[in-house]
Design a protein around this nucleic acid. Structure first.
Lengths: 216, 216
DNA sequence: CAGCTGGCTATACGATCGTTCGGCCCGCTG
DNA sequence: CAGCGGGCCGAACGATCGTATAGCCAGCTG
């Protein structure tokens, strides 16, 4: 048995630089930037701590390299899904999600750890969601009561809540959502949630009116 | 001008123990458990680092004290909102949200920092959401296609994504969502999102079928 | 074959952080 | 008034982490 990298390449076939980057991606995702030590990453990659500095210069540079790798991967997938009208292609939808999971988790962690590159991707995701929502808005009976940008930013933040709190979701439902079975349950539940309103339009109107006159 | 605590009490009127706890709540929320140092917290509270240990014993005990305080506050609010049918009371809805913001943010951070007490609150929130969703399900034309627990856990995780990524949302929309104006925009957008499905039932069905036969 | 370059290791340094220890000062008690 | 306990402080210790340095070894070049 050999540990495989995200691409499916065997552990011992990778260069030391690639093994370090993969180990860093895993440790940054799992423990966050601060708790992930260079020594632990080096040990996981099967090299010395000095080699990490030799290849990447500093821990911050290592983080930037991980950011670039993870975000480039996300970029490639998402761009492909957008150009091919992937939202209507159920097959591409099912196949593209699995390999993206590690990078989604990394992105969520990097956002919380205040990575600059991750913040940039967040803004890009908001821009893409704006386009998506614009299409949705056209086939809506009532006009939106909130500005497009805010709705898009909240949609992205809520979606990222799933990988961010992945461990807690898994514990709550008693199944690791990264496993095939858990992942399936998550997808079904997300589709159900996204295709059904949580609150009725009359309730929303009432709550909205409660905002306008806080002391009525 | 004096810094005020969550309860609105003046800074200098609080006991040193309370000032330490409040400063710790703020620093744990803002920087996370690891990056928040005892020395910084002590300086913000206007005391020495030694006094922190004198009152709380260790950094972990300080965290537990913050957990207990924040989660007890959340508990009190939520319990009140549930018993009084707060979901239909627009006035209580508008007034209860603002003071809860700091504790929501603290909870989101504590969950990511793997606080045990926070995990417990997460499970309780899932249980409450289950009851909420059960009421919603009764007035639905089609039966849910995913189990109740998973839908509830995902709903909680997605909702917590907002305080978790608060900084990024604020940057994206150009307004601090903790300010009155930003908060209003967020509430309106959340109400709009929750009261309108993002994907149609036919699209959801198509995507669901793509899952059952991944190699069609 | 000599010499150099680059991947790689081991050790040590400096800074930071949680923690510990000793003692000061105030207010209460007998 | 003497004694004492708790709030409080400052200095120091030990551990850990990022980083810097010196050197080893294989492979290529002239």
């Amino acid at each position: 048995m050999s540990i495989t990298s995200p691409g499916g390449v065997a552990f011992e076939d990778l260069t030391a630089r690639a093994r370090i980057r993969n180990a860093a991606l895993r440790y940054f995702t799992e423990y966050g930037f601060d708790r992930a030590t260079i020594r632990d990453i080096a040990r996981a990659a099967g090299v010395s701590a000095g080699l990490v500095r030799h290849h990447f210069g500093s821990k911050d540079e290592l983080r930037k390299a991980c950011d670039a790798y993870a975000l480039e991967t996300l970029h490639a997938y998402v761009e492909q899904a957008m150009t091919e009208e992937g939202l209507n292609d159920s097959k591409a939808f099912a196949e593209a999600r699995d390999p993206l999971h590690p990078y989604q988790r990394y992105l969520a962690r990097a956002l919380i750890d205040e990575s600059e590159a991750a913040a940039q991707i967040f803004d890009e995701m908001v821009a893409m969601t704006e386009q998506f929502l614009e299409r949705i808005d056209k086939q809506r009976p009532d006009p939106p009561v909130a500005d497009l940008r805010t709705r898009a930013a909240l949609t992205v933040a809520m979606a990222l809540g799933i990988p961010a709190f992945q461990a807690h979701i898994s514990r709550s439902i008693g199944t690791d959502i990264l496993s095939p079975e858990g992942d399936r349950r998550v997808v079904l539940a997300v589709l159900d949630i996204q295709s059904h309103p949580t609150i009725g339009p009359d309730t929303a109107r009432t709550l909205r009116q409660g905002l306008d006159k806080p002391d009525a």
